[in-house]
Design a protein around this nucleic acid. Sequence first.
DNA 1: GCAAGGTC
Length: 694
Amino acid sequence: MSILDMLILAEKASAAKHMAKAFGGTSGTVAGKTYKIVHAHGHLMEFKDPEKMVKTDAEKERYSSWSDMKTMPWNQADFSWAKTYAKSYNSYTKKSKSTRDDVNAIKSEAANADAILIATDNDPSGEGDLLGWEIVNAIKWNKPVYRIRFADETPKSLNQAMHSMVEITDQFKQGEYLKSDARSKWDFLSMQLTRISTYAARQAGYRVKVINQGRLKSVIVLKIWQQQQLIDQYVKTPYYEAKFKDPAGHIFARSLKDDEQKRTARFATEKDGQAEVDKYTKSPVTNIKRQHKTQAPGALIDLAKLGSILAKQGFNSKEVLATYQKMYEAEIVSYPRTEDKKITQEQFNELLPVVDAIAQVVGANQQLLTHRTLRSKHRATEAAHGANRPGVKVPSSLESLSKYGPSAQAIYRTLALNYLAILGEDYQFDRVTAELELYPDFKTGFNVPVQLNYKAIFDDTDSDDESNSVSDVVGPEAEPFVYQGANPKPTRPSADWIGKFLEKHNIGTGATRLGVQAQLTSGKNAFIKDQKGFYTLTQPGTIAAVLVRDSWIGSPNITKQLFDHMDEVGKLNESPAIVVNSATRVIEHDLPIILKNSRELTQFVGKQVKATKKYAAKPKTKGQLTNGKAVEFSSTWGGHKFTEGEIQQLLAGQVISFAAKSKAGKAYTASGMLKEQTYKGKKFWGFKADFGKK
DNA sequence: GCAAGGTC
């Protein structure tokens, strides 16, 4: 006899905490059901390695290969799609640990319940459904499963959700689960492109570790590479154009809308420009208009934007993510991994009593914080977490935050000022416009600040605005002059620029966008070098990019297509198998392209190669053991190449001896036999010397 | 040694 009607499964600790608050405890009665709340921390399960999802020895060999391109594309029907406990990484202890204990803890609580309720936020990608079902399947649950979804974690929303729970016991009829499961399989299959790229780079003679490719990674490195090409190919082409200037320095110019207009107004030489200018005379300024305008504070920032602001101050994304996480756990800042850029009225109200204290800590002028209502442009009707902002717990000082990490003070200051700006009044300015009496096509326009208001707290505009120092006195006359301009230089790749690109194409999520950039910019095998937010590709990064030129995986369109099909799966209009199969179409298409691109690598990375030595995969010998088992092993050892006779002896399980060389170059006689060995947790067959008998 | 998606 069960003790509980319902085991409520939350996605993470903070959600479980909010539910406990909403329902009156970690266990009790809600909506007429007895319950207990447990929580995961994200995905607790993940796919096993490819070679561990297949049955036969031949399949295991096929799916272990990094060097035989004939083994790809993989046949996904060979896979069991079995999952194993994920390794969770703790940034405090810098240790990774299996989620086995977490799953078992949930399992033992479930033993007391009649049903499990998957309770995660209303994420249209279905990720909450997937991680819920992963746990339900892992504990071999065979009783009813229910589902609630909620837009935010306020008691009101959570209690409402409890009154509209639905039964979803058949997971294969649940669109959200099916679509997200298909997405995860698609992404998993895309790992073939990493093996293909690694192989292709080595074949081309590059001593590389792993050349990672995927929907995010490939798009990011290729985009940076293409932009770098544009910059390298950029030729500054000056042009000379007639403009006018008044005594205060205001420029009067024509607005050149298309290329045709630009061609007729701009000249290639200064001489021709001067000839054009000579056609004009000094002109009185007329039609001066002064219009009063206002501008409300901009949007609140998300994590990617915060990362790019701090990058300019010299903090790297990896450190910012880790420090932010620690500050979130201390409740000093709000939940990090959100895509929300607005907040709900409740979230606004919650913070209102402490805004003066926050202002004091960051040194903002409290007298500017007069707009104590939430503007509609910042208000969301639903937001699970709300935009990144300070928490209700206010630190005693900025200095006290240093214990969370090097960027802690900068994170808090930036978040706080950005948030406090929405409590400032609108920026007030005069828009002044004027034109020339003799040549009315020549116009000027500029803004004169009247009251900075919110901009005095946090200025969100890029600095390419008109200078504030221009005088607001226009005219009375303006004289023609030769203006020298040039075609614009392509933007330098930066964290901000990549963030906007990914967001525009809907690639990755708020959490993964910054995470992947952190991954690509750190470690020994980094693909991107980050210099105060500006990106350049390292040598392996350049190799990764060149290999995916003209490929599908390097195109933002592949994610769009994947998501479009996922939506159809979600509506049960399309079979998940079609989505998963489309990954195989990508491998078929991209494999020959990557191999072809590898032949052009020297053209782009040739000069940067440190080790010019050709580097090829070690030659392997295939054969059969006396028990019939097929094995593959290196055909050389210690500088010695096994003879045909030695290979037969090794396969027969015999001990052989030969002249070998140590790494230091010392000659000795090696004796040993063929053995199954383990390297970094992976099993392989190879010659094993018996040093005891040497 | 591999992906992207959650999480700490």
